[in-house]
């Protein structure tokens, strides 16, 4: 497919992929200025989302989520530990996002990049209130469940936050905690997996990320669009329609009106995903 660069009456024709590599910004603008996106979506359109629960049998709770090409697997392992002295009745939910070179050449091998650390921290804080940590108590002050939720990205094509949040919600719903008892004489906690209970989530979270590409606000930016977007808005709703998070970060200011529009789009998105989850 050829695209003519007609800006200065030059008769140079580029193959589409070449033009995209050489002048990525202009390539995206050609679509955005025509009110569409390079993959044919509308500005407010999210990619196809698929959620599957229970995909990893070695984890106590797991899920695989795909938004477009971005694929993540979330696995939750339950271990036993002593509670914090300040909160003797509360267990732990520790969330980490893994962005390795396997999913994209953007990430270097070795220690987690700043992006991965920020994503881990944000999601960890977001879910702090989603699970009632008191339900993770085995024996007050002595033994509690410690849930390690690890979100591993298999393929990266933008919008890791939405995918990771959905994966964690699905994995938490899939989680089956065995009945556990503490033997105070030996200090050993024993558990029976045949009697497993589901964890009740205080609230399910439905995320929606919007990115400012050039001057256009688009929903669910993929990798190509994310490279040009310095600014993004994340809106997270819970199942009662209340907000759990609005996070606008990045260089360009976004008007308050636009943020309200994002909230409205996020409400629609929440309705759609709640049927998939």
């Amino acid at each position: 497919m050829d695209m003519d660069d007609t800006s200065e009456q030059q008769q140079v024709a580029f193959a589409m992929h070449t033009f995209e590599r050489i002048h990525h910004t202009e390539f995206q603008r050609r679509f955005l200025s025509q009110n569409t996106r390079h993959d044919g979506r509308a500005f407010s359109q999210f990619r196809a989302t698929h959620v599957t629960k229970g995909t990893v049998s070695t984890a106590q709770g797991s899920s695989t989520v795909r938004i477009g090409n971005t694929t993540v697997v979330c696995g939750i392992k339950a271990e036993v530990s002593e509670p914090d002295v300040k909160t003797p009745n509360e267990g732990y939910l520790v969330t980490n996002v893994e962005l390795s070179p396997m999913c994209s050449a953007r990430f270097r091998p070795g220690a987690p990049s700043d992006e991965a650390q920020v994503a881990s921290e944000h999601i960890h804080r977001l879910f702090g209130k989603a699970v009632d940590l008191a339900t993770l108590c085995i024996e007050s002050g002595q033994a509690v469940w410690s849930l390690s939720a690890d979100i591993v990205c298999l393929k990266y094509d933008g919008n890791i936050l939405d995918t990771a949040i959905l994966a964690l919600v699905a994995a938490l719903e899939d989680l089956r905690l065995p009945e556990a008892q503490l033997d105070s004489a030996t200090g050993v906690v024993s558990a029976d997996r045949t009697i497993a209970r589901q964890l009740t989530l205080r609230k399910r979270l439905f995320p929606a990320t919007f990115a400012l590409v050039d001057t256009y606000l688009v929903a669910d930016a993929d990798d190509a669009e994310e490279q040009l977007a310095t600014t993004s808005v994340l809106v997270v709703l819970d199942d009662s329609g209340r907000l759990a998070n609005i996070w606008k970060r990045g260089a360009c200011p976004v008007s308050n009106e636009t943020i309200h529009q994002c909230i409205e789009s996020a409400v629609e998105r929440a309705e759609t995903i709640s049927k998939t989850l």
């Binding site: 271990e79 530990s81 520790v94 987690p112 650390q117 921290e121 024993s190």
Partner: peptide, 18 residues
């Protein structure tokens, strides 16, 4: 320090159904 950390010590419980 590059990850969110959980409690300093944790173990698998003794599964009695195996």
């Amino acid at each position: 320090r590059r990850r969110v950390n959980g409690p300093p010590r944790s173990v698998e419980p003794l599964y009695t159904d195996e």
